[in-house]
C-alpha cells in the first residue's frame, strides 16, 4: 500500500506539470487585459506603461518559467521561513507570485481567505453528509415509502434549483421580511464569547443551508442507490436467514459494503471545500477562495487565476489518490501491491 502510494505520488509530478502548463497557457492565450477595468480617463499611453510595470512585456516561455520558479520554489521557501521564523538566503529579493490587482503575493491572499471557505463550505459539507447518509439509507430501506417519495422530491429540488436562486430567496425571507439573519457575512467578526459565537452561527446559517441542501441532495441519492444495490445481494438474504436482528443486518452487513462508493464520492467532493463555493460566496459576500477566484477572473488578474486554479488541480489529484487508498481500506478484496 505504501509503495503504491509513493508510486502514485511520483506519477502525480508529471501530471501536475502538464496541468500547470495547460492552465498557464490557456489563461495566457485568453483575451483579457488587467487595465480593461480602469476608467477610460486613463489614456492609452499610461495603460501601456502600467502593463509594462506588471511584467507583461516579456515573452511567454520566460513568464511561464518565472511563474513556476516563483510558485514551486520561492513560495515554499517563504512558507518555511514564516513557519520556522528563519531566513534562507536572500529572502528580500526573492520574487513571489503577485496579484496584478492588489500587487501583493497571491499565496497571502489565499491564506487570508481559506479560513472563511473552510468554515462555511466545510461545515456545510459536514451538515450535508450528516443529513444525506441517514436519509439515503432509510430511503433505500423503505423504498417507495412516503419517506422515500418525499425524500426524492426534496433531493430533486435541492439538486435542480441553483444556489443563486435559493440563496436570494432565503435572503429575501430571513433578512428582508423576517429580519432574523444578516444577509451580508461580516468577515471581520471574531468569535470571543458565547454572544459572538451566536452571531457567527447566525451569519453562517443561510450560506450553510444553501450549500448543504445542494450537496446533501447529491450524496443522499448516491447513498440510496448504493444501499439498494447491497440490499439485493445474496449475503444479505443469508444474514437474514441466519436469523440476525434487522439492525445488525443493516449496520454491519449492508452499511459497510454500501459505503464504498459513497466514501469515494465524498472524498472526490472534498476539493470543492477548499475551492469554495463561487456563487454562494458571492451572494453572501463571504470573502472565501471562490470569491477571490471570480473577482480575479472578472478583473483579468491572471496570476491569481493561474495560481488558484493550479492549487485546485493539485487538490483534485491528491484527493483522487486519497479516494483510491480509502477504497483499499474499506474493501479487503482490493489490493494494490
Amino acid at each position: 500500500m505504501l509503495r503504491y502510494a509513493i508510486r502514485r505520488l511520483l506519477f502525480a509530478i508529471p501530471t501536475l506539470l502538464a496541468i500547470s502548463f495547460v492552465v498557464f497557457a490557456l489563461l495566457d492565450l485568453a483575451p483579457g487585459d488587467p487595465t480593461a477595468q480602469l476608467p477610460l480617463t486613463i489614456p492609452p499611453e499610461t495603460r501601456a506603461l502600467i502593463r509594462e510595470s506588471l511584467g507583461l512585456g516579456q515573452p511567454f516561455p520566460v513568464r511561464y518559467v518565472r511563474w513556476l520558479e516563483q510558485f514551486l520554489a520561492n513560495e515554499p521557501l517563504n512558507l518555511v521561513e514564516v513557519l520556522l521564523g528563519i531566513e534562507i538566503g536572500d529572502s528580500e529579493g526573492r520574487l513571489r507570485v503577485s496579484s496584478w490587482a492588489t500587487r501583493s503575493p497571491v499565496v497571502d491572499l489565499i491564506a487570508q481567505r481559506l479560513p472563511q471557505t473552510l468554515t462555511v463550505v466545510g461545515v456545510s459539507y459536514l451538515v450535508a453528509i450528516l443529513i444525506a447518509v441517514p436519509v439515503g439509507v432509510f430511503s433505500a430501506y423503505r423504498q417507495y415509502s412516503v419517506f422515500d417519495q418525499v425524500g426524492t422530491l426534496i433531493t430533486m429540488i435541492g439538486f435542480s434549483v441553483p444556489t443563486f436562486f435559493t440563496g436570494t430567496v432565503l435572503i429575501v425571507i430571513f433578512s428582508g421580511v423576517l429580519g432574523w439573519l444578516p444577509s451580508i457575512y461580516d468577515t471581520t467578526h471574531r468569535v470571543t464569547d458565547l454572544a459572538s459565537l451566536g452571531y457567527q452561527l447566525k451569519q453562517m446559517a443561510m450560506p450553510v443551508m444553501v450549500l448543504a441542501l445542494f450537496s446533501a441532495a447529491q450524496i443522499s441519492r448516491f447513498t440510496r442507490s448504493a444501499v439498494l444495490d447491497t440490499l439485493h445481494q445474496e449475503y444479505v438474504r443469508t444474514a437474514r436467514a441466519k436469523g440476525l436482528a434487522e439492525p445488525v443486518v443493516m449496520l454491519v452487513h449492508v452499511l459497510r459494503n454500501s459505503m464504498i462508493p459513497v466514501v469515494t464520492v465524498i472524498a472526490l467532493g472534498l476539493p470543492t471545500t477548499f475551492a469554495g463555493a463561487i456563487i454562494t460566496e458571492q451572494i453572501f459576500r463571504i470573502n472565501g477562495v471562490g470569491a477571490l477566484l471570480i473577482g480575479a477572473i472578472e478583473g483579468a488578474d491572471i496570476p491569481t487565476v493561474q495560481t488558484v486554479t493550479f492549487i485546485f488541480a493539485s487538490l483534485i489529484v491528491f484527493f483522487n489518490l486519497v479516494a483510491d487508498l480509502l477504497y483499499g481500506i474499506l474493501d479487503p478484496r482490493i489490493r494494490y501491491d
Binding site: P31, D33, Q37, A48
Partner: peptide, 8 residues
Amino acid sequence: ASVFFGSD
C-alpha cells in the same frame, strides 16, 4: 467588458 475595454 474585460476584452472590449482591454487593449490587447
